[in-house]
Amino acid sequence: MSQVLIPALVLAGLGFVLGFLIFLVGKYFYVEEDNRIEGIVELLPKYNCGACGYPGCKEMAIGLLAKESKPAMCKPMKKEDAEVLQKHLDALFAPKTEA
């Protein structure tokens, strides 16, 4: 019994300690991010292939927000998806109407 229990407890304990440490570090070094980035990343293929010239899809999304890049730069994305992304971007950049 203890042959199973001890390794399991050691692993679980270690996982708990490390997870808690990550939680603390994440809380202490929290960086606020533009919450629009995540929405754009969701519409990208998330292959992180680098064909657009950015190191990953997240960086491409930041570029899209800064109007440095265009959805067409993403090589593996289908045309329909690119149109959806463009619409999403247009909605983001559109001047806010008073509601």
């Binding site: 070094f29 929290y30 960086v31 992180n48 680098g50 950015y54 190191p55 990953g56 997240k58 930041i62």
Partner: peptide, 13 residues
Amino acid sequence: KKISPALYKALGI
């Protein structure tokens, strides 16, 4: 990410 955003961006994935 906190200390050097430029390096974070360059290293990427």
